[in-house]
Design a binder for these strands. Structure first.
Lengths: 343, 343
DNA sequence: TTTTAGCACTCAGAAGAATCGAGTGCTAAC
DNA sequence: GTTAGCACTCGATTCTTCTGAGTGCTAAAA
């Protein structure tokens, strides 16, 4: 569709615009090494490219900037794989050596690291924990009727909750209940716990535990898992260094957007394998119409379970960022596996 | 030191400036109801007040704005107690009804609430948990030699950690160890655990548990509590609505400051009883030289254990904010007590 | 002695005018 | 098909003018 020369010009414009954030003119281009033809020729080609929708002109007497379609073409067809500098590789490995003892920390750490590396905003969407299974359940008394319930999953995540014991239930009965649960429900996915009790175990429980009526509500509370993924974000303030965010209102609307994290969670949700690039309005959110989001899922046991994402201006170094996100996701999967001691 | 009339004028200027954020002129003042003298008289008084350092003039042909000293005098001598509107009282109570099951949630919730109410930035510094005592300790095996250690305090906080078991230690030995700890260390403040083992229990442990040498490091890890207080902040983006933060660089330097939360923690640290007001440079931080910080501690068992703080422009409604912070801190103490079921 | 009216003066910020220059489109020659 | 040349466009920058809120000072009134 595009001639080689047009591709070269489009590529050069984007390449220039990514660092300068200024419209690129024909003269600037003609001075580049790998462009051998005159400014006039370039102007003709640029006019054509604009007509086809790959370029835009802020006003008549300005240079051209890439349009969303232009970026799309760039990402899909022109991208050259980014080469890490030796320095970057070393730094990357060094930084990744740090040990962590909880999955949450891995996410948080990765998010901060990534934003430092890219100078953009990053997200890490924790894995949906509903998949994990019950390993151990326990109720620890505190004072009077206050207790802490602890629920450990097979992945070593600990869910705690502070509760009030139902009236008239002795610690003896509670002990029985806890035993019963550990015995019958161990190894069951958290999300099925409630159903399992209601459908299969209720009758048995009633015989086994006195005053089941009083315990029932307590159980509901304890086993209610909000399996909602946790979202870690980092580096929002770095965005303010970008010329496109010299405007307080823009910054604010972006920060407000982040605060309603559900929007972002939805955006990060679809867990296809491989790196996804959504440019500008492809995200369907007005506030970030001149931002791009690059996401990729990380795997656990070969399954994509969560997402790593970067939000930056449409004018970003796609090659580098894509490489970085990919690297992180892979390294990330490894770290998770390590943490859970699975080969 | 200041005549009644000077006080009235100073008060009026601040009162006006708090809402307008614009320098206040003599004519504007003379039109106010409770000011009965002419603009010329006011000008004379203002000149005097400026000479004494209570007012400043951005430039010769502008009105006056309060200086830091002016605010100080206002807060110390002129403040009128803020009267809640009926609406506010109702809203406040409604919002505070929500139930929470973990101390962390209380902090987070309060922080968000307070920032919504004030439209400024809020901090809640969680209590130093080193005071809390061991209630229950447990080690739960996951896979191979990976375990999760769980440590429940008397206040119902749960500290978890993922660890690798030392080689050559059977689950039997581990069980003994856990029993030993629960038996001997229950009720001991977390911060003393390590010392207690080293000084008093080590000898006994060596007899009791085989291969103590291998276990020792493991214990160190498990009982290492970073008793660092957690800082919750909220509402940074609200600051961007203020005219004094129409400048991206200012916003950024503020956000950067928050990111280095140690600085803030230090600022919130001193836990005197009662509401503290630090105006502008009294905080000794350049980035917030035209912000004020209002803090107060909340109590637990009658002791100040943590801090609630608000950061807003020096030009803030001190009366209202002070009242609000005070209210929150008190209600907060109550909630904590409630949570821990202490009368 | 204190207060006030009157008036000349100041100065930041808004509005307007002039200038600059990067970049374009078009034409005509190569 | 490519390029040099040239008139033209228009945002940004700079300079200028204008405006008006607000002051300080003086002299008269209370």
């Amino acid at each position: 569709m595009l001639t080689k020369r047009q591709q070269l010009i489009l590529w050069s414009i984007i390449d220039d615009y990514i660092v300068s954030a200024e419209p690129v003119g024909s003269r600037t281009l003609s001075k580049k090494e790998d462009i051998q033809f005159s400014a006039a020729t370039i102007r003709n080609e640029m006019a054509d490219l604009e007509e086809m929708g790959f370029l835009e002109q802020p006003h008549t007497s300005a240079g051209r900037i890439p349009s969303q379609k232009g970026y799309r073409f760039y990402v899909d067809h022109l991208l050259k794989p980014y080469m890490w500098t030796q320095q970057e590789v070393i730094l990357l490995h060094e930084l990744h050596q740090q040990k962590v003892d909880r999955a949450e920390k891995v996410f948080e750490h990765a998010s901060i690291l990534l934003s430092r590396f890219t100078n953009y905003m990053t997200f890490v969407l924790g894995p949906k924990m509903s998949e994990s299974k019950l390993r151990h359940f326990q109720v620890i008394p505190l004072l009077d009727r206050t207790v802490v319930s602890i629920l450990v999953t097979d992945q070593g995540d600990v869910h705690q909750q502070r509760l009030t014991m139902p009236e008239g239930i002795s610690s003896d009965v509670m002990g029985k209940l806890v035993n019963f649960i550990n015995h019958h429900l161990s190894g069951m996915p958290l999300q099925n716990l409630k159903k399992a009790i209601e459908n299969e175990l209720k009758d048995e429980l009633i015989l086994y535990v006195e005053r089941y009526d009083r315990v029932s509500h307590f159980l509901d509370q304890v086993l209610f898992m909000n399996a909602q993924e946790k979202l870690f974000t980092s580096g929002a303030n770095r965005m303010m260094d970008l010329p496109e965010f010299r405007d307080v209102d823009k910054v604010k609307s972006l920060l407000d957007l982040i605060e309603e994290s559900d929007v972002l969670v939805k955006l990060l949700e679809p867990r296809e394998i491989g790196v996804q690039v959504k440019i500008g309005y492809e995200n369907h959110i007005d506030e970030i119409r001149d931002c791009s989001i690059i996401t990729t899922s990380y795997l656990f046991n070969g399954e994509p379970v969560g997402t790593i994402g970067i939000l930056g201006p449409t004018r970003m170094d796609y090659g580098k960022i894509i490489g970085l996100v990919d690297f992180f996701a892979k390294d990330f999967s490894k770290q998770l596996m390590n943490l859970y001691e699975i080969e």
